[in-house]
Design a protein around this nucleic acid. Sequence first.
DNA 1: CCTATAATTCGCCATATAACGAATTGTATG
DNA 2: CATACAATTCGTTATATGGCGAATTATAGG
Lengths: 116, 116
Amino acid sequence: MRNFMATAKALSDEGRVRIVAALAGQELCVCELIEFLELAPSTVSKHLSLLKQARIIEGRKSGRWIYYRLVGDDAPVEVLAAIEWVRSSLRDDPVARRDSERVSEIVAGRADACSD
Amino acid sequence: MRNFMATAKALSDEGRVRIVAALAGQELCVCELIEFLELAPSTVSKHLSLLKQARIIEGRKSGRWIYYRLVGDDAPVEVLAAIEWVRSSLRDDPVARRDSERVSEIVAGRADACSD
DNA sequence: CCTATAATTCGCCATATAACGAATTGTATG
DNA sequence: CATACAATTCGTTATATGGCGAATTATAGG
């Protein structure tokens, strides 16, 4: 129950859900997620920390950047099921669609921003 | 996104999740849920109101009692998927197991309490 | 009718949470 | 080694949330 509630609480904030949805397609570094959500760096960092503690995402350090991605198939059942819940529920969601396009743009412009 | 977040927020409280799990097997009236959660009537009522607004549960009035149950298959996708997420995640959860037994006891003693 | 029980609504309070800015750490690069 | 940028941590603040008790509404039964 403890772990389940950690997962549930992690998904009870819209910003964090949008992060999870954004990471469904590809990994993104923190500065890209900041640009995506249009929130202060400290705020986004806190969200990422919470999602990481809930074992929903994991980070990979590369130079100055930290890339976050969804956890792999070795993750706990309630987490994998939660991710699938988000994906299936937002498949036809207008906000999620716009977000998806915006993420694509941000990734496309990577040469100007987060790259080594 | 709006509806999804309503569902997610509804499941971000442990008491409400335990209600959903308890209603997975059978419908229960409010006074049974009060006994189950050991919370004040006003608190439980508020939780039920929130779950109802999120379209996760629905109520059926019978005499003095109002029986709540999980929504049927005609409910929104994100709600059905959420219910399935809870069920599968808590299948082997110790707390959920004890809760399940307790609900059985409460239902078994229905003749002394909630019946018409 | 009057009382008891079920359930909800309302107002209050304590705590949790999300947001920010400032300060800090770490890494690449001039 | 100084600077710039990525990211985090910390302290603060405003708001959201969960809990309760008191008051209210509705229904069954003496």
